[in-house]
């Protein structure tokens, strides 16, 4: 999705202004004007300047605020992005409750099934093997505390 430079520039300039405002109270080092606030203020100021130039450029070129490019239609792209976000959020929210093995298995099966147009045997078998391998590599070999969730009661 292409967004007009006018809009992007305004957002960047706003971000710069907020950064300057948020760094106004950072104290400077003793006996000199520079300190923890110098760089954030400078970055904010540059964002305002360059965001402003970009907005000006977008305004002079005119053009639509939003435009679509690429061969794949907007509906499909937005749906796919939503699915990826949903998968990550589901992982974050559900893993502490249901445990990594369950969440990983279900998520992988659903996603592979969807992307291979319902080859569910393939999806399930890949999901089982991948979950087991990731568990072995990260939880057992590298000692990353992947949550067990409800499975804790089953295992122990």
């Amino acid at each position: 999705m292409r967004i007009n430079d006018l809009l992007l520039g305004v957002v960047m300039a706003l971000l710069g202004a907020i950064t300057i405002w948020a760094s106004r109270d950072f104290p400077s080092l003793p006996r000199q004007p520079y300190g923890a606030g110098t760089f954030p203020t400078l970055i904010g100021a540059l964002l305002v300047v360059f965001g402003g130039i970009m907005a000006l450029r977008g305004w002079r070129r005119r053009g639509a605020l939003f435009a679509w490019q690429g061969e794949v239609g907007p509906k499909r792209v937005l749906f796919c992005i939503a699915m990826v976000i949903a998968a990550v959020v589901a992982y974050i929210e559900l893993t502490p409750i249901l445990g990594f093995p369950v969440v990983s298995l279900v998520l992988l099966t659903l996603m592979i099934d969807w992307l291979t147009s319902h080859r569910w045997v393939l999806a399930t078998s890949v999901a089982v093997i991948a979950t087991a391998l990731v568990w072995l590599a990260f939880a057992k070999l590298l000692h990353v505390p992947l949550a067990l969730g409800v499975l804790e009661k089953v295992v122990y």
């Binding site: 990826v84 992982y91 998520l107 890949v126 990731v134 990353v144």
Partner: peptide, 28 residues
């Protein structure tokens, strides 16, 4: 098939990001 590969990479990304500090904040 890329339909198999991409979900696996996504899972690897999530677990990899989590593994730095064992924190879900990093996944966000």
């Amino acid at each position: 098939p890329s339909g198999v590969l991409y979900p696996l990479i996504l899972l690897f990304c999530i677990v990899g990001a989590f593994a730095t500090n064992n924190s879900m904040l990093d996944v966000w």
